[in-house]
Design a protein around this nucleic acid. Structure first.
Lengths: 211, 211
DNA sequence: GTCTATAATTTGATAGAC
DNA sequence: GTCTATCAAATTATAGAC
């Protein structure tokens, strides 16, 4: 759960420049996207000279690929971890959602970042994500739901069910900025709203799928 | 419902250059976002010289503002239209969702476009959306739900309920590209999936909120 | 490894002929 | 109104000193 962030902070603390650059690049890419990001902003964020970026990562695209791949892989691992569990499917969904909210509350930009870059350059993303990762998601989460439907544990189209779960988890974070504007709330209030929402969603999943 | 698209097509058919440019700009901005869009691509898409864009809209920002405002206003009108209805709240939710899916299936890029530009430049968006539109949403949809909660028609936090409805409607379209990659489906199959999903969501809303 | 200086490229914007 | 030619600015990338 929380040892990811501890690990990240340790990495940054006693970091070589390369790790420092990756952390800075991640935060700037998440904020601005690939097209909207200036290398200068990454350099400023890392507190180094802009040309050092080229020394470590040759060019902007390479740096982006590294950052995106790491961010995506981190999410993928967590999604796939649940595939090993043999809990009842509704419990697994709740565990998935709880974990998703825990991560997203700490790092709310990642979901929009991924769906957005996927949208703007599907080919590139397909190459980065390279089958293995995505098929992991499919084998893990979707396959688990498929089995539960076969067993009669739950009813419905597995794909629709999966899209429902992911929508309920991801969209409140993807639309963070719009939600904040719509309801006129600052970052602190938004975080509270999402913490409350975590409990709300766990109940909702139970209500929807418990037979 | 469908006369929007007819109207759009008529506009483009017997269009002046200005309308032609706006249609081209909308499609390119939706695909690439503001930062990722090159004026040359808009000009190519409209089949005109790049400098003509400056004649009509002075600069990139002005063109973007016009396109974004029109796109947002179109959505806003539809969301707000339901505020006038006096149907039971669950019926209103279903009408909202049905209409949302009808529009989004025809024009699936608009949701990601809006939340993404909101994320990248909240201040700018706030200025464009200029209070009035967003407060319209608030007064319309949210206020309606608040009243229903007060009346005991439904239970729960109105804001959480609204985020749930919007997530179920918007996210399957915002994450279109990722869904297509995850489940390995082309545009045609995706459209069928969303048509099926429309029916699925109407049932789901009933299941969640009907007491 | 890190910096300064500079090149190369892309992109947005303007001027002016027609 | 639309085009060609041109300018100006921003941004990425490289070369070379230290």
């Amino acid at each position: 759960m929380s040892d990811i962030n501890v690990k990240e902070m340790e990495e940054i603390a006693n970091s070589d420049t390369e790790t420092l650059i990756k952390a800075a690049a991640k935060s700037v890419f998440l904020k601005n996207g690939l097209a909207g990001t200036r290398l200068q902003e990454i350099a400023d964020c890392a507190g180094i000279c802009r040309t050092a970026l080229h020394y470590y990562f040759r060019n902007k695209d390479k740096l982006f690929d590294v950052v995106f791949t790491e961010a995506f892989t981190e999410i993928h691992k967590r999604v796939n971890g649940f595939a090993q569990s043999d809990a009842p499917v509704v419990e697994m969904m709740k565990m998935f959602a709880a974990d998703f909210y825990d991560i997203a509350i700490k790092d709310p930009g990642i979901d929009l970042f991924i769906i957005n870059e996927f949208n703007q350059n599907p080919e590139r993303m397909r190459k980065i994500v390279c089958g293995e990762n995505m098929q992991g998601v499919r084998r893990g989460f979707l396959h688990y739901i498929e089995k539960a439907v076969e067993n009669g544990e739950i009813k419905g189209d597995p794909i629709q069910i999966m899209i429902t779960i992911v929508s309920l988890c991801a969209h409140p974070f993807a639309a963070k900025s719009m939600i904040q504007n719509m309801f006129d709330i600052n970052d602190a209030k938004y975080e509270i709203l999402m913490l409350q929402r975590k409990a709300y969603i766990l109940e909702l999943i139970e209500k929807i799928f418990k037979q």
